[in-house]
């Protein structure tokens, strides 16, 4: 029963080999989907290209549906999966800063790495920028600490915080995603084409 490595079904040494393989697949998919182009990524905010939204939501839907099927069929133990912790203000403020950074820089860390791999100089600058950002955070850690460590609600899922059955939520989420896809196509037809 999965997850395989935390359950010691695969020797720990394989962990690092698997990391590279997963990374290669991740990079390949991101690049092939066009995520190495900042202008394509930024399109989601201006309505001329919704690739980010489509890839992102399709991936989220496929993975969440898949995980819950696997959990149901007993292939994976949901309680052993890592759930991103919920620090209310950390997520909101951090997310807001990332949002500004996304629009300004046109990348997020994963996609910037893809762009670095195919030789985009702006992406290299962006990665250096990220490192400076991490450096600033670390140097002023005591200043950020109240947000970083405060308002902690645990590693909770929406099932607990919204008190809703995960299956129903997934159904609503799927419908929401598909409506978003349809709307994005409608918006794109209205917006002036941008060639990049």
């Amino acid at each position: 029963m999965g997850p395989l490595i935390p359950n010691d079904l695969i020797p720990f040494e394989w962990n690092l080999v698997i990391a590279i393989i997963i990374g290669i697949a991740f990079g390949y998919i991101l690049e092939s989907s066009g995520f190495s182009s900042s202008r394509k990524l930024a399109g989601v905010f201006y309505g001329y290209d919704f690739a980010v939204l489509k890839v992102f939501f399709t991936a989220a839907l496929v993975s969440v549906i898949g995980i819950f099927y696997m959990d149901y069929l007993g292939y994976v133990d949901f309680s052993m999966l890592y759930v991103h912790p919920f620090y209310l203000w950390g997520a909101l403020i951090g997310g807001a800063i990332m949002g500004v950074g996304f629009v300004a820089g046109g990348f997020c860390p994963g996609t910037s790495l893809c762009a670095v791999a195919i030789g985009k100089i702006d992406a290299m600058i962006y990665v250096i920028g990220i490192m400076i950002g991490v450096f600033i955070f670390s140097e002023f850690y005591s200043f950020f600490e109240p947000i970083y460590d405060g308002y902690f609600y645990g590693n909770i899922t929406l099932t607990e915080s919204l008190n809703i059955s995960p299956y129903w939520f997934i159904l609503f989420f799927t419908i929401f995603g598909i409506i978003a896809f349809a709307l994005s196509d409608m918006v794109r037809k209205k917006v002036k084409k941008v060639f990049y």
Partner: peptide, 27 residues
């Protein structure tokens, strides 16, 4: 602007404990 964006994203990713792939997508 890429540099500014990178700095902001790096800072934000630390505060939120993850970026779009680690926190949002995997979350």
């Amino acid at each position: 602007f890429a540099l500014i964006g990178g700095v902001l994203f790096g800072l934000g990713a630390q505060i939120a404990r993850g970026c779009t792939s680690g926190a949002a997508l995997s979350g």
